[in-house]
Amino acid sequence: MSNLKKKADSPLERLGNGLFKENPTFVLMLGMCPTLAVTTSAMNGLGMGLATTAVLMMSNLIISLLRRVIPNRVRIPAFIVIIATFVTVVQFLMEAYLPDINKALGIYIPLIVVNCIILGRAEAYAYSNPPIPSFFDGLGMGLGFSFALTCIGAVRELLGAGKVFDYNIMPASYVPINIFVLAPGAFFVLAALTALQNYIRIRLRKAGKKDKADKIQSGCNEDCMNCSDKGCSKRFYDNSKKTEAKDAMNGAKRRRAALARAEGEKVSSKEAEKEGSESFADKNAEEKEGEKE
């Protein structure tokens, strides 16, 4: 995501970026909860995608307009309030004009608030870019999301009910694989999708296109320490607090040991902590203590 600022962000470039280059579902694997939950049919997927698009466009626009007003420290709560406002607006609009889809999507409409795509775009793009590109960034990302949801919905509907958008596609002799419109089917379809993604990434890496391969991500491991995605919305919750919590957990004993350690060692141990898992870092520190004694 670091290459965003180099180019002049024309609206068209933003649209293409959201639809293809950084497609939130197929490439970045963001916002998986609604992706799995609502794609029982192509129509539901499309409805959810467009609802998200509307929220994404408007929240990006407003956040971009307010980017000089919102203080850096309280930006996340401010984003959430703005996003939640638009989600509420969209929810009531859908209740009024599209009651059927609203009923089918149910609780997942208000849950657009916690969709990481929206907060992610606000943080990664809208907060540091002018309004018009931000608006089109939201539109592009939203359309990319809608496109992905519609595709997944269509596949599940085709396999699970033999229809796409309620049109019968399969011959009458086709026996629908019911499980694909039920909950387990969602997991299977997503598993196939991630496997395909991995396959493409492995191929790209073998072909020597490492930067292209690195762009493809397979979901969040909640491992912000080693995560390369700077646009991730969760990053800003975790990073500082995780280390804080870690400090508290490691207790006074380790802190004393760290204080006693020489400055150079300190740096190296910090690096080790960043790279290794918690237990690994613990072991490392203990070993060092042992060496000292």
Binding site: M32, C33, P34, L36, A37, L111, C116, A183, A186, G219, C220, N221, E222, D223, K234
Partner: peptide, 9 residues
Amino acid sequence: FLGLCPFLG
């Protein structure tokens, strides 16, 4: 499908 991120992560 709620709380999928921590479930997988």
